[in-house]
Amino acid sequence: MPDMSPEARRLAGHGALVLIFGLLAGFAIGFVVLGGFILDPLPSATFPFPGSERGWRAMHIGSLLNGVMAIAVAAVLDRVVADVGRRRLIAGVIAFAIWANTIFYLFANFAANRGLSPWDNAVGPGSIMGLIAFVPAGIAAFITIWVLGLFARSAFRG
Rank of each mutant, 00 (worst) to 15 (best):
P2C: 01
S5F: 00
P6E: 13
P6I: 15
P6Y: 08
E7F: 06
A8Q: 04
A12L: 09
H14K: 03
A16R: 09
L17I: 14
L19E: 05
L19R: 08
I20D: 05
G22T: 09
G22R: 05
L24K: 10
A25H: 03
A25S: 15
A25N: 06
G26M: 07
G26R: 01
F27E: 09
F27K: 03
A28E: 03
I29W: 00
I29S: 00
V32C: 06
L34G: 00
L39G: 08
L42E: 10
L42I: 04
A45D: 07
T46N: 12
F47D: 01
F47T: 01
P48V: 10
P50L: 06
R57E: 06
R57L: 15
A58V: 01
H60R: 01
I61E: 00
I61S: 02
I61H: 00
I61W: 02
G62P: 03
G62Y: 01
S63L: 03
L64A: 14
L65P: 00
L65Y: 02
L65F: 13
N66K: 04
N66Y: 12
G67T: 06
G67E: 03
V68S: 01
V68A: 13
M69F: 13
A72C: 14
A72M: 14
V73L: 09
A74S: 12
L77S: 08
R79N: 15
V80A: 07
V81R: 05
V81Y: 03
V81E: 07
V84I: 13
G85E: 12
G85Y: 02
G85T: 13
R87S: 10
L89V: 11
L89W: 12
A91L: 04
G92E: 08
I94R: 04
A95K: 07
F96L: 06
A97Y: 09
I98M: 15
W99F: 15
W99K: 04
A100I: 08
N101K: 03
T102P: 04
T102K: 01
I103K: 04
F104S: 05
F107Y: 11
A108N: 03
A108L: 05
F110K: 03
A112N: 06
R114N: 10
R114P: 00
R114F: 10
L116E: 11
S117L: 08
S117E: 08
S117M: 07
P118Y: 06
W119P: 00
W119A: 15
D120T: 15
A122S: 14
A122M: 11
V123C: 02
P125A: 14
S127M: 07
S127R: 04
I128Q: 11
M129N: 09
F134A: 05
V135K: 07
V135Q: 10
P136G: 11
A137R: 02
G138C: 12
I139E: 08
A140K: 02
F142V: 15
I143D: 09
I143F: 12
I145V: 15
I145T: 14
I145E: 02
W146C: 05
W146V: 11
V147G: 12
V147R: 09
L148F: 15
L150S: 08
L150F: 09
F151P: 04
A152Q: 12
A152R: 12
A152Y: 13
R153N: 11
S154Q: 11
S154F: 05
S154K: 02
F156C: 13
R157C: 02
G158K: 04
G158E: 07
